[in-house]
Structure formats: C-alpha cells, structure tokens
C-alpha cells in the first residue's frame, strides 16, 4: 500500500533525517501539484474546458446546497402532489415540539419520528437554541434569512445553468461525453468485475488507468442527469415558469412533488459528492486533483509485483 501514490519527482536521499524531510514537504507538494508530468510517466487527461467547468460547478453545488437548505428551513416539510400546507401530512419534515424534558427537535420520515435535538429541528444559532430545520453550520447564509438565501440560490442557479450548458455542448461536440463517459458494451459486461474491484479498493494501473472505469462512468452520467433534474424541478416550482411550460407540472406530478424531487435529487448529488471525494482520496488525491487542475495525470504503476 505504501507506494500507491505517484513517485515523487524530487526524491531525496533515504538517510536524510525526518526534520529535513518535513521541511522539504511543502516544496514536494508544490512540485507534485504543479510540476509537469512527462509523457513517459503520464498523459494529459482533462481538457481545459472540462477542468474549468468542473470547478465552477463544484462551487455552484456548494452554494446551491447551502442556500437550498436555508430556503427549506422556511417551510421544512415535503409533500406529494400539486398542493401542500400545514394542514397536510408531509412525508418528510423537520420540526420542534415541547416535551416535559424541554424542547425536542425531531426528524419525521413517513410514520417514523426520530429525536434529533441539537442538529435537526432544534439547534443553536446566534448563540441560542431555536427551532430550525437544518442547523446553522449547514446553511448559507448561516443565519436564517429566506430572502438572502434565495439571492444566493438564484445567483448560483444561473451560473450553474450556463456552466452546465457549456460543459454539455463542449462535451458533445468534442465527443468527450460519447468517448470517455458513455459506457461501451465491454464496459457493461465488466460491471460485476468493477464492483469487485471497488469492494477491494483496487484502483486501475497502467493502461486501464487511462480510462474511467465503468462504475465511474455511470456515476458521472448519473450526476449529470441529476443536475438536469435539479434545473427542471427548480423551474417547476416557479409560478412564472409554470405559465411558460405548464407540462413540467404534469411531468413531475405537481408543484409540491417537484419541490420534493428537487430535494431528493439534491440529496443524491450530495451522496455522489461524498463517494466522489472518498474515491479521489483513495486513488491518490494529489495526482487526481492535479489532473483536474492543470490536466496532467501520472499513470499509477502496478507495484504489487516489484516485491517478488
């Protein structure tokens, strides 16, 4: 496991003491992050437009999730259908109730109710406990403000829309989507094998590391689909947009259903991001992130046979 990461460009003599090694570390990190990878060691993996749109998208997702949770707090209940208000039974809600032992925050999912005091439903904000769907540290802004959260949300929604269109159009035109992301027939047959590789935390080396593996391709396709769903369900909540494309209301089963699907898609995107980050760390974070920053990726070599 020790030699999984890329070989350092700037290797130092083995017998140097740990202090010198520690002092050299920032320099090595810098080299690793920005040093050019030679054609022999690796290859140019990500085009400039994919890199740029990837990071703009990541920033948009952070702000949209944070401000979305703040907006959700204005009415922390989800319904199905065209309508839904306090009189209707939500299938998911966050809230606070008084109990003999003091206020309790709760999370309700269908018929279940969980005590989530301190985190969901009832938590600390501005120095005092208060009824609050999602806690302050999850929301943008951290203080409760529907008006301001909406401003952040619509600002980044517009950026996400144009950024996403740029990515999609470029990726279709350059055939990046068709060649690198759309799974081939052989990919589909390799799904069971790829699942096993993932369970064993085995990452491709050599030539196989030049391509995305099939689960990775499916995850990227899935998240692209989810982001399209976010945009459409978001627009379906807009009464102005309803007058433009009323059929969207029928597609998603009503305005409150669209709101719920918007929330569920956001949760799935968050799940993607968590798995995505774990994979980046497991696959060698410096090499992976460098490839998304300056494009250059060092191909991991298979060292398992070296020790024989």
């Amino acid at each position: 496991m020790t030699e999984r990461g890329p070989v350092a460009i700037d290797s130092r003599p083995e017998n140097e003491n740990w202090l010198a090694r520690l002092r050299a570390w920032p320099r090595r990190l810098w080299h690793e992050a920005f040093g050019r990878v030679s054609e022999k060691e690796g290859f140019y993996r990500h085009g400039a437009l994919v890199r740029l749109t990837h990071w703009i998208n990541a920033l948009c997702i952070i702000f949209l999730l944070g401000s979305g949770l703040n907006i959700f707090n204005a009415h922390p209940r989800l319904y199905w259908g065209m309508t839904g208000t306090d009189a209707d039974q939500p299938f998911f809600s966050l809230g606070a109730v008084d109990t003999p032992a003091g206020p309790m925050g709760f999370t309700q999912i269908g018929a279940w109710q969980f005590d989530t005091t301190g985190v969901l439903g009832w938590s600390m904000a501005d120095g005092q406990f208060q009824p609050r769907g999602w806690p302050s540290w999850m929301t943008i802004p951290g203080f409760q403000s529907l008006a301001d959260a909406r401003h952040w949300h619509f600002l980044f929604a517009w950026i996400l829309l144009f950024n996403g269109l740029a990515y999609l159009l470029y990726s279709l035109w350059s055939r990046h989507l068709q060649k690198d992301i759309w799974p081939s027939g052989a990919d589909i047959k390799a799904i069971p094998r790829s699942i096993l590789d993932h369970i064993k935390l085995k990452h491709p080396t050599g030539d196989a590391a030049r391509r995305y593996n099939v689960l990775q391709k499916l995850a990227y396709l899935g998240v692209i689909f989810l982001i399209v769903a976010m945009v459409l369900t978001g627009l379906t909540m807009s009464p102005g947009f309803n007058a433009i494309f009323p059929w969207l209301l029928d597609l998603f089963g009503g305005r409150q259903s669209a709101r719920s699907l918007h929330f569920i898609s956001a949760a799935l995107i968050l799940l993607f991001v968590i798995v995505h980050l774990v994979e980046v760390v497991l696959a060698g974070p410096i090499n992976e992130i460098r490839s998304m920053l300056n494009g250059w990726y060092r191909i991991p070599q298979d060292h398992s046979k070296d020790r024989e």
Binding site: I71, F72, A74, H75, R77, M82, T83, G84, T85, D86, L146, R150, M237, P239, R255, Q256, R259
Partner: peptide
C-alpha cells in the same frame, strides 16, 4: 388558481 408561498407551500 394555485397560490405558491415564497416559503414553499401551495394551496388552490
């Protein structure tokens, strides 16, 4: 018509 509150709920 449907009335949509900025908070998120709707009623007809």
């Amino acid at each position: 018509t449907r009335h949509d509150c900025v908070e998120g709920w709707s009623a007809i």
